[in-house]
Design a protein around this nucleic acid. Sequence first.
DNA 1: TGAAAATATCAAGGATTTTTGATACGTCAA
DNA 2: TTGACGTATCAAAAATCCTTGATATTTTCA
Lengths: 109, 109
Amino acid sequence: MPTQTVSDTARAAQIFQALSDETRLEIIAMLESGERCVCELQDSLDAAQSRLSFHLRVLKEAGIVTDRREGRWSYYELNREVFDDAEAILKDLRPRGRRGASRAGECCG
Amino acid sequence: MPTQTVSDTARAAQIFQALSDETRLEIIAMLESGERCVCELQDSLDAAQSRLSFHLRVLKEAGIVTDRREGRWSYYELNREVFDDAEAILKDLRPRGRRGASRAGECCG
DNA sequence: TGAAAATATCAAGGATTTTTGATACGTCAA
DNA sequence: TTGACGTATCAAAAATCCTTGATATTTTCA
């Protein structure tokens, strides 16, 4: 079995936290159609360079993007796997069974 | 057309932000099988009462749970719709087209 | 009526995240 | 080589989020 460094819950929280910022969601939107270099992102988003760099790092640390350096340019790309993970996590959080399955009366009696 | 109070991006960020905390994810896990009263949540999670109350409020404000009062008890329940929304948002963020569609060379020329 | 229970709210403090401006680093081209 | 460029990193300030303990509110029960 794989060593479980962080709990599934912690991993889920990390992914959602990375997705919880508007600037980062905009970055993701720009990467949807493929790899982009930082300078392009900078042009479209009007974000200070270090700010953009910060958000790209958050995304990278959460595994949402990968990066690649080519000469003096850096290219960022979405990591498909993490989207599968996120979808699975969401499915897991989803309410099960019939709507409004009441537990009233089973507690605090 | 509906008045768009907040952008879709802002709404997405709000949902993900609500999901970005381990305590809240645990609360959601406990609600998966149906409605629960606050006292039950409090027993299972070992969270101070006001802490639990705070997190329930965040979840409620993000539309992830609904609440219902009955006598002196409050019951919280997951809101299915928001999970559909979240799934749709994720689908939207997902990378499109073929893997590694490179844009290298199209910028920074 | 009065006390106790269940929950919400509030204010203060601590912790974490985000922004900003400065600086450092590798790469390229003159 | 030297200088400009693209990007990352750092430190400090600002903003936001979370926790804690105190208090308020509503409801129930003796």
